[in-house]
Amino acid sequence: MTSEPPRTDGQERFTTPVPVRWSDIDMYQHVNHATMVTILEEARVPFLTKPFADDFATTGLLIAEVRVAYKGQLRLADSPLQVTIWVNRLRAVDFTLGYEVRSVLADPDSKPAVIAETQLAAFDIGAQKLVRLAPHHREYLQRYQR
């Protein structure tokens, strides 16, 4: 897991490598579209573990929506994929993460092969209802907001 240094434009980005497994490849030798959601999850977990780890017993995160757009090919040789994450939208109960996925061989500023978004909502596990994000969650997420 890596976190890039702060950018000169004042926006932080979180970038982490995610290995491609043989089982992630389809018959055309591309990363299978169905496994891309899992790859996004594998990148999201280290991004959210730090601010949410102490609260996981009581507060969880539910996926409300996932969008994935494919702009190029990814293959086994592109592993590990470089997944960059930022916050697109931050509201009282939910937030939306943006993703760019590139080959390990790609320039970090090149066109991504995959662009995606996930909307997550804070959830009280015991009460089984949506809850507001805690101030320390919001503070962490604001650092990565575009």
Rank of each mutant, 00 (worst) to 15 (best):
V45E: 08
G72M: 03
G10C: 10
T15V: 14
V93E: 09
L74V: 04
D109A: 12
V93T: 15
Q119S: 15
H30I: 07
R7W: 02
E41P: 01
Y140M: 09
Q82F: 00
L48M: 12
E117L: 09
A92M: 03
T38N: 14
Q29L: 14
V68K: 06
D55C: 02
M36E: 10
S103T: 06
E139W: 06
F14V: 06
A34L: 14
A53K: 09
K129Y: 05
P108K: 05
V93D: 00
V87W: 03
H136T: 09
M36K: 10
I25A: 11
L130W: 01
R75P: 00
T35S: 14
F56H: 02
A122T: 11
P6N: 09
L133G: 02
L74G: 04
G60P: 08
Q82R: 14
A34D: 12
V31P: 03
A64L: 14
V20K: 01
K71Q: 11
R102D: 01
A127Y: 05
P5L: 08
D94W: 03
V131M: 15
V87Q: 00
L40G: 06
H136W: 10
Y99V: 04
T59G: 00
R75V: 02
R143I: 10
V20D: 00
A43R: 04
A77T: 08
T58K: 12
V20R: 01
